[in-house]
């Protein structure tokens, strides 16, 4: 079957200036895809989903913005739940990690140091209950989540430091555990910033 625009056999019938058309095509698409499309998207996104489009910022009870729920933060105070290892210390202006290969001796050294640290700060929880996500560097260095197991493993330490009962903290962790998306995709996880925010409110009331 013949196409509607072709006229005859394989010989070209088209005699326009090829470079002129190429130039104009490029300029038109630069305007269309490089300026119009992103700006229209921005306008609509700001109109329909303003809070998501601006980075899903989180406020504390006084209304102060304390960060984005999607961007992990550094918690050095041991009375807070701690997030994953981050070679950039959660400095969000330059995401990244060390990219240690599994065979890199530096990786083993860093993991061993994390384990020693854990034993010192969490004498009540044996190393065999320390989940692997707490001692490994996330890909982005900004992972906002830890696994529920990692949160629960920190409960005895925080209970002792804050004088809040283990049961109450376990309940808090469960309340802040997010399920898999649509019940099947991804992993169960706990948002460290939201959990810590709730933890700090707990002390105030």
């Amino acid at each position: 079957m013949k196409t509607t625009v072709t006229t005859a056999v394989g010989e070209e019938k088209w005699n326009g200036s090829l470079w002129g058309v190429a130039l104009r095509t490029s300029l038109v698409l630069i305007v269309l895809c490089g300026i119009a499309y992103p700006l229209v998207c921005t306008g609509l996104a700001q109109l329909i989903f303003p809070s998501q489009a601006d980075g899903s910022m989180v406020k504390d009870s006084t209304g102060r913005v304390v960060g984005s729920e999607l961007i992990g933060q550094s918690f050095t105070d041991p009375s807070f739940f701690q997030g994953r290892v981050s070679s950039i210390d959660y400095q969000a202006e330059g995401s990244g990690s060390n990219n240690y290969a599994p065979s890199n001796p530096e990786l083993l050294k860093r993991v061993q140091a994390s384990i020693a640290d854990w034993q010192k700060n969490n004498p009540d929880v044996p190393v065999s209950e320390l989940p692997v996500d707490l001692i490994t560097n996330s890909g982005s260095g900004l992972d906002p989540h830890i696994t529920p197991e990692s949160a629960k493993a920190q409960v005895p330490r925080i209970s002792k430091l804050r004088g809040v009962s283990v049961d109450e903290l376990n309940l808090l962790v469960e309340r802040y555990t997010e399920g898999r998306d649509l019940g099947v995709f991804g992993e169960k996880r706990v948002n460290v910033l939201k959990l810590n925010l709730a933890l700090s409110e707990l002390g105030k009331s």
Partner: peptide, 12 residues
């Protein structure tokens, strides 16, 4: 450690 999570280095 509890390594049931697999190789989590570099993952989210």
């Amino acid at each position: 450690i509890n390594s049931s999570g697999g190789s989590m280095e570099g993952k989210e």
